[in-house]
Simulated scan of single mutants.
Amino acid sequence: METTVKTRLVEVVVPVHNEQRALRESVTRLHGYLTGTFPYGFRITIADNASSDGTWHVARGLAAELPHVRAVHLDAKGRGRALRHVWSASDADVVSYMDVDLSTDLDAFLPLVAPLLSGHSDLAIGTRLARTSRVVRGPRREFISRSYNLLLRSLMGARFSDAQCGFKAARTEVAHALLPAVEDEEWFFDTELLLLAEGAGLRIHEVPVDWVDDPDSRVDVLRTALDDLRGMARVARRTLWGAARLPVPPPVREARLPRGMARQLPRFAVVGVASTLAYLALFSLLRQAVPALTANAVALLVTAVANTAANRRFTFGVTGSAGALRHQVEGLVAFLVGLALTTGGLALLPAGVSHGVELAAVITANALATLMRFLLLRVWVFNPRRRQGR
């Protein structure tokens, strides 16, 4: 049975304070979901910030029972403090967090972190305010949330839509660059992080989420709102005074082949191997009767015509006679490039070298010519835009 090696790592932090009743069920469900469906490596970190009930005991038990689960304890309270502590020391590719009540549908987690792993975005947030989001919560919390985000957009110029959703992620190196500038240690931590990121020109990806309000939530909405307003005033003052430029790293994108190249390259290689063998056989045969330069030119011309025809049909999927003559003529341009490279290689050899040295020289030059030939065939001779008349 094949084993898939997951080389990318995503750290999921679950900050908790006095959550002994919900912690076991939530972490077990999260762990089961990620184990069964998540295509990347993951680590769940339960960050207990100064719980006074049995939360820490439950967290240690889960860390002992479940693989890829660990628990850390902080003596001081504050969600922002807990996230800062874990994210700052993380060695994962992406750091994230979600509220312990798992109010956000877990199916949104992969869309949240995938753009960060690919390098497309720098931070990602779940939003409950998109048209395609489905949200179940009371009118009071709905009003407060929308009013808060309206203030952020109107007073702070924020372009992100939902600062308070407990479902966020960031490229770890971006988080490491931003965290020293974030002052808040509690609920405004998220908003401050996003405002700093936006001010630094970072890309924030938004994922519409399905979200169901937790009726057992013990967040003091009024106190949190007042703290948020004070945080907004502090960030605004710092912005007016001129914040220091953050050492934000550039995105690291996954290496991806251009569209269609993954299919074309192996076919081109097969045709190329066959052409090279034919070329070497013909070159060796002709070399017994004519000089090296002549043998090289004739062998390369014959195999170039056959190579263009084979690549036309098998590599680039062009059938029928339409354009065949043009393809051969344009293919001769690639032939001339190859001829120049291989002829130049032979011309640089000192007189009287052995046949083996000659062969090694033309093989090296032919490899360079092959690379150039593939690029010319792909972007010019058999470019689909030209075939479609665009």
Rank of each mutant, 00 (worst) to 15 (best):
E192T: 01
L193H: 08
L193V: 00
L194D: 09
L196A: 08
E198N: 10
G199D: 05
L202C: 11
R203H: 14
V207S: 02
D210Y: 12
V212W: 10
V212M: 08
D213V: 11
D214A: 06
D214W: 07
S217V: 13
R218S: 11
R218A: 15
V219D: 08
D220F: 04
D220Y: 06
L226C: 15
L226D: 15
L226Y: 08
D228E: 13
G231L: 01
M232Y: 09
A233N: 10
A233D: 05
R234S: 09
V235P: 01
A236H: 12
R237Q: 07
R237L: 12
R238W: 09
T239L: 09
L240D: 02
W241M: 10
G242C: 03
A243D: 08
A244C: 07
R245L: 10
L246T: 06
P250E: 07
P251Y: 07
P251Q: 11
V252D: 08
V252R: 10
R253D: 03
A255P: 13
A255D: 13
L257W: 05
P258N: 07
P258D: 03
M261P: 13
L265E: 05
R267P: 02
A269S: 04
V270T: 04
V270P: 03
V271A: 02
A274F: 13
A274Q: 09
S275E: 07
Y279A: 06
L282R: 03
F283R: 00
S284M: 05
L285S: 09
L286M: 02
R287Y: 05
Q288D: 10
A289H: 14
V290N: 00
P291G: 03
P291K: 00
A297I: 00
L300M: 05
V302W: 02
T303M: 05
V305M: 07
T308H: 11
T308I: 14
T308K: 06
N311G: 01
R312D: 00
R312H: 06
T315V: 08
T315R: 14
T319F: 13
S321Q: 15
Q328G: 01
G331H: 04
G331Q: 12
L332A: 06
A334T: 07
V337R: 09
V337C: 05
